[in-house]
Design a protein around this nucleic acid. Structure first.
Lengths: 139, 139
DNA sequence: TAAAAGAGGACTAAAATAGTCCTATAACAG
DNA sequence: CTGTTATAGGACTATTTTAGTCCTCTTTTA
């Protein structure tokens, strides 16, 4: 099981690519597709979600494309994952704080709830800028 | 996205149910299916994996069923998840330490690697006994 | 006003998840 | 030594999620 699906992976790649550009220029989809290795039509959908979440802004027409709407410093991995994949949970019962319908779901709540919180905290601690910095270092 | 799929959920429920029994008796599949709400034929498969992983032992024939092979104190959530669902990873590139084929996968490695480790650590910290204890407490 | 670019919806393909079913094998009671 | 109760295990099916495509529409600007 992977926490990060392909769409989020593409999103992170695209954001890191953008963060690595010296200036905060606008990046056409075609460029992002080439840089990330994602099919352009698919990446479009991913970027639309980042747009909806206020992470990036897009412009149509000639000279259009994608640029940051938030400072890459302030964009967390959790934010990207949630924007692109939807909510992250340790178990179904945690999504949107849905009420549990039996005691077993609540067993999950009581103890695994801590794990859930810690996991989200981990994902909140990493930002696009972190990732971009690391990428520039030698392997 | 849920970290814990239905099969693991059933496994945890069954193990907690077993841990709650006063004696370490043998539990027939039918009993476990009733206690967990899982379809018996499906639960069978799940338990087989727990057996293969050395978490429980099973006996066939009259009076047969399932019992702990390891102390429930020593059975971690990570162990159960891995036994039933397979490896847990933050991204594909982490499964079985597979080599990355491009720098983006390695971007994921360098920074998200820490998250991966922390996540596994979280799952290692919770045991079946923990879950069973919590379940007995009032909501 | 035509070319370049993203928006958005409907659609399809592939893979993972969740289960079912059927036959075989083991253990034990009588 | 055989019938009954129980798990083993493989093949199969259904459902859902993930991944991707395609086509038409709108926006932008040279």
């Amino acid at each position: 099981m992977e926490l990060i699906k392909r769409n989020t992976d593409y999103a992170l790649r695209a954001l890191v690519h953008m963060a690595e550009a010296d200036n905060d220029r606008i990046h056409p989809m075609g460029e992002l597709a080439a840089a990330t290795g994602a099919p352009e039509t698919f990446l479009r959908k991913v970027v639309q979600k980042l747009d909806a979440a206020g992470v990036v802004a897009t412009r149509r027409g000639r000279g259009g494309g994608v640029c940051f709407q938030k400072d890459p410093d302030a964009i967390t991995v959790l934010e990207v994952v949630e924007a692109v994949q939807g909510p992250v949970a340790i178990n179904k019962c945690f999504i949107a704080n849905r009420e549990c319908d039996d005691r077993f779901a609540c067993l999950i709540r009581s103890n695994l709830g801590g794990i859930q919180n810690d996991l989200l905290e981990l994902l909140r601690a990493a930002t696009v800028t972190n990732l971009a910095r690391d990428t520039r270092l030698p392997a």
